[in-house]
Simulated assay, not measured.
Amino acid sequence: MHTDFPELLGAGLILLFIFYLGFLSLKIKIPNVILYILLGIILADALADNEILHFASEVGIVLLFFLLGLEFNVKRLGGIAKKVWPSGLLDVFLSLGVTTVIALLFNLDLFSSFLVGGIAYATSSSITAKLLDDRGRMANTETEFILAILIFEDLVAPIVVAILFGISSGESFTSITFFALVGKIFGLTLLAIILGKTVFKKFERFLDRISDEDFKISLLIGIALAYGGLALFLGLSEVLGAFLAGMMLAEIGKIEKVEQTVFPVRDLMLPTFFVYFGTTIELGDGVPMAMLLVSVIIWSILAKLILGVVGGPLYGLSKRSSLRAGLSLCARGEFSVVIASVATGTLKAFSGLYILIAAFIGMVLFEKAPKITTKIYGKPVKKKKSLRVPGD
């Protein structure tokens, strides 16, 4: 008689839990992402090292960013890059640099302080992108700026991770290592551009000839997973690779043909990412380094608000859209988890608690962003057909 709990049964139960929590979130008006993360925390011991959950979560996050990449062809991405770099550098200074200094002021050593800065740096791409999609804000004026910042952070965060992993493993992180990382990012991006302009230039016609939807799913998801996997193989983020894979296919005329095939699989897999994310959060006993925790949480929220209010206008946004962007960038997530894996002991528990609180506060601020903006700036003036009102 088998006494081991079958993983297949576990997978089925997780999907049923996801369904129930998604339904519950509509009733109690709490973002379903929060409930998925809490489910992961509650089931952390039971789901530890669950390979099916881990694989499903990887597929979900890859497909989310693959579909995001479809919205950005090379021409549009180039235009965004020119506009976002001042705001991106401001983000590095505020969220990574100043947070590191705050940790130093609490008598942490340089490595631990930089680790805390790294954990507080990157906005959760997965949580933010999911909420943008769920709340129908993809067409908002500030969304391009938010996505541009997320992409910029996805370029910087792997370098931060590599530095921390290099130092923690005892290896020396030299300028050669740094330039090798930058070279990998540049090479992967260049390859995506070349493939997009050559191999995938006439991809739409090829898709039209595939009548069987099963083959189409295999092809499109295979491209997304392969390029995301290539990024991982090179020591970069699968999120970056998946975005670039989407960008390759963005050159085709009608991206809807790709989206309608991939959407159902993404919607099935993506909730598992947040459940898995919850299982990685280690809370420990009590509240470690409470004053530092409070200080870092407060500053990390203020840093993103300043990024929106100051960086938004640099990108060309109105004050209203800039504030809404800042309020929407506060959640921390997957890169924070990856960076926190380097931590040990008290710092590990500190990191887990910070990520959970920052993710929760960030999602609440995202939800309230439109109302807060309206309260400060009043209701937006509706545009007339023959009149364009500045600042809207």
Rank of each mutant, 00 (worst) to 15 (best):
A340T: 08
V364P: 02
R324Y: 10
I361N: 02
L68I: 14
Y227C: 13
E256S: 14
P313L: 11
I223N: 05
M247L: 10
G78V: 12
I163L: 04
L365R: 14
R205A: 13
L38Q: 04
G79V: 06
P6Y: 01
A48H: 10
G278A: 13
T177Q: 08
F114S: 14
I339S: 07
M248C: 01
T123N: 03
D267G: 06
D109I: 03
F106C: 02
K130Y: 13
L67H: 01
P31K: 01
K383I: 11
P288I: 09
G40D: 06
E171H: 06
F360Y: 09
V389G: 11
Y354W: 08
R266N: 07
G229H: 03
M363C: 11
R209F: 10
A303H: 06
F65W: 06
G22S: 15
A56H: 07
E51V: 13
S300E: 05
E153T: 03
K368Q: 11
V239H: 00
L64R: 00
D134T: 07
L353S: 05
S336Y: 06
A224F: 10
I30V: 14
I301T: 11
D133P: 00
S168Y: 06
I194H: 10
V258R: 03
N50E: 05
P86K: 08
F178K: 06
A192E: 05
V265R: 07
S126H: 04
S328V: 10
